[in-house]
Simulated scan of single mutants.
Amino acid sequence: MTTQDMLDERYGRTRSPRRRWVIGAAVALGAIVVGLFVWTTVSNSLDAVDVDTTGFEVVDEHSVILSFQFTAPMGRSVACAIEAQDEEHGVVGWRVVELPPSQEHAQAFRETISTTAPATTGFVNACWVT
Score class of each variant (00 low, 15 high):
A117Q: 07
V49N: 10
A26K: 06
H62W: 10
F56N: 13
V124G: 04
V33P: 13
A25E: 11
V92S: 01
I23V: 15
G12L: 04
A72W: 15
R95D: 08
E9V: 06
L66P: 11
V59G: 04
W39Y: 14
A72C: 13
L66M: 05
T40N: 10
A108F: 09
V59R: 10
P118V: 02
E98R: 14
P73C: 06
A31L: 15
A119S: 00
C80Y: 02
P17D: 01
R110F: 03
V42G: 06
G24C: 14
C127S: 01
H105A: 09
M6Y: 14
L36F: 15
F123S: 10
A106T: 09
R10L: 14
I65H: 05
F56Q: 09
V51D: 09
M6R: 12
L46H: 14
A119Y: 00
P118K: 01
R76H: 08
A117K: 11
R10D: 05
D86W: 00
T14F: 06
G55T: 10
T71N: 10
V42Q: 09
G90H: 08
L99S: 09
V42S: 07
V59S: 06
T54L: 08
M74H: 03
S102G: 03
A25I: 14
V64Q: 04
D50Q: 13
S67R: 14
V78D: 02
V22I: 12
L7H: 04
F68C: 02
R10E: 03
T120E: 01
I65Y: 01
L29N: 09
T112L: 05
I82L: 02
W94S: 11
S114P: 00
C80W: 05
M6D: 08
Q107I: 07
T121A: 11
R19C: 02
G30C: 11
I113C: 06
M74S: 13
V34Q: 10
G55P: 11
T3S: 04
E111V: 00
G122C: 01
T112C: 03
A28F: 15
